[in-house]
Write a protein that binds this DNA or RNA. Sequence first.
DNA 1: GCCAGGTTGATGGT
DNA 2: ACCATCAACCTGGC
Length: 651
Amino acid sequence: MPTPRVIYWFRTDLRLHDSPALKAALDLSPEVLFPIWCWDSHYVYRARCGVNRWQFLLDCMNDVSASITKLNKKSQLYVLREPAVTILPKLFKAWGITHLVYEKDTDAYARERDVEVRRLAKEAGVEVVERMGRTLWDPDELVKANGGKPTMSMSQVQHAGAKVGEIQAVVETPTSLPDPGDLHLKKLEQQRPEVEPDINSQYREQDERSYDQGLAGPKKDFAPPTLEELGMPAATTPIKGGETVIWKRLHEEIFADEDYTGTFAKPNTSPAAFDPQSTCLTSPYLHFGALSVRYMYHKTEEIVERRKKAKKAVSEPPTSLTGQLLFRDMYFAAQAALGYAFGQTYNNPSCRFIPWHLPSKVSTSSKLITGSYEIDSEEAEVQFRRWRNGTTGFPWIDAIMRQLKQEGWIHHLARHAVACFLTRGGAYISWERGAEVFEEWLVDHEAACNIGNWQWLSCSAFYAQFYRCYSPVAFGKKWDPEGGYVRRYVPELKDMPKKYIYEPWKAPLVDQKKAAVRVDGDGSEEEKDGVKLYPKPMLDFNKQREVCIEGLKTAYRVKLYGNSRQVLDGTWKELFDDTAEGPTEGKMGGPGGLDTWDDAEGFGHDEDDGEGEQPVKKEKKPAASSPKATRGHKRERSQGTLDGAFKKKAK
DNA sequence: GCCAGGTTGATGGT
DNA sequence: ACCATCAACCTGGC
């Protein structure tokens, strides 16, 4: 057996502390170790990653690279400007690799990529070593312990977690690293093919920009790129990425304040607090793996246990700090169980079907569904744009959306406020449209959590109390009666009297004049006759609230899910007509999703919904006129980008 | 089948 | 700060 020559492939784990995968790599006692990042994964081949998250990723890369160099002057993070599936086979050969080691990633897209990578490794005689380090428990094991079903509630996670066993202990941080070997850059660059397979030609333009710089970048030093190299403008977020950044803050500020850590209760933290924010803001570091979630969990538990012994107050899950981490695991496991379908309503057995005024792009791109919506979606489209722009005319909503765009981060409850407002508590627009905006702008965007939370807030899954509705006026007022948060992020209202700060359209003209702002228009103009403008509200909230609740009531009565037959074949609409009164007997067209791919896995929602229809299990393929209808679309919401590209190549 | 509980509503009372 | 009420969803335990 030759001495191991190892590639350590960084993906979701830009850290050196508490990394089970890195430890596994070092436990091989390798002769050489190449720490690499491939120009791959979600960050190149994706439609939507805003500049702020890009910057945060680059911060994390630079930081971990510097930490590597500290342990071994000859080493660094080698950022390769080529996707894993094409560069890895070449590296295996050129570097004489025996082992490929990485942290397990259960993201739907990552799984598909990694299946291909395993195949390529096998072909090259390279052993793959994979370790879980991204969540408290392995999402696949949580799902298994949950009866093979997606985890849809906190109690399910806690029960399944108890079955899986103790959360893995923290592993030690390496104090030294092996040398990397000769990189053979010239040889590798000569071998560079025209990018084959052509993974997602739709992102071609962006790819080419980086390929033009060569495999090792403009300076041939394998350094992380700059935003300039990527052709992007400067970032606007004040949040700085990197393991050392969060490590310092975690110990010097968060854990150092044991009262804060030990009694943390999410619902009691203010969404209107800024500078500093009311929560610990660890999410983006967890996302990029710059902070280990298990380290955070164990350290928090240590503090909580110490306080318990001292008979000091502590908080408990789900509202405590560790409770927040449990929710994260819940969403990861739900995603692991559902794969690509988790990211959309269409063909998702866990997601309730609600006929939003502005449907998702998947719905509208499906021939089966287009045309079935008769609602004035043009008005909804305008409302969507105003929501995105932060010009809804509701200062609380607009302040949040503007903070999100500028800084890439908003408080959890602020996310609730704007998500509820966009979907079931205001504009009645599909959660998928909102999720896309968060995906682009959040520095902490985690596909599983973002998707899960949008389903939660829109009452599509996880949560059902749709009559609990956030008011765009009252909710902000409750947390911030003076309106300081609004004044900070909607500066045109900074001198508006407190009385009108959440409802400026009610301010008499004389007050508007004093505040040097005119409440008028739809947000398309910033100024008129030399006076600053703030838009009038884009909808009557109290009226819309009624419309939304009625809509949700109907949708819950009709009881269709994303994989119901009527959703897949586009005949759902008749079920929503004439549903105003009475029970639903006889109105439903039969169980919905019994004949879709999900049923093989046994967790459709349709088998037990009573209502007295005969099971139509027998009719194998429904009246789907397109193969899309049964296989479902894959989306690019950070899951799913490779689609057919791999498969073609695999043959 | 009943009933309590569900991380984070709003309002109007004390 | 702590109620009840509004209307009424689902899940989980018995």
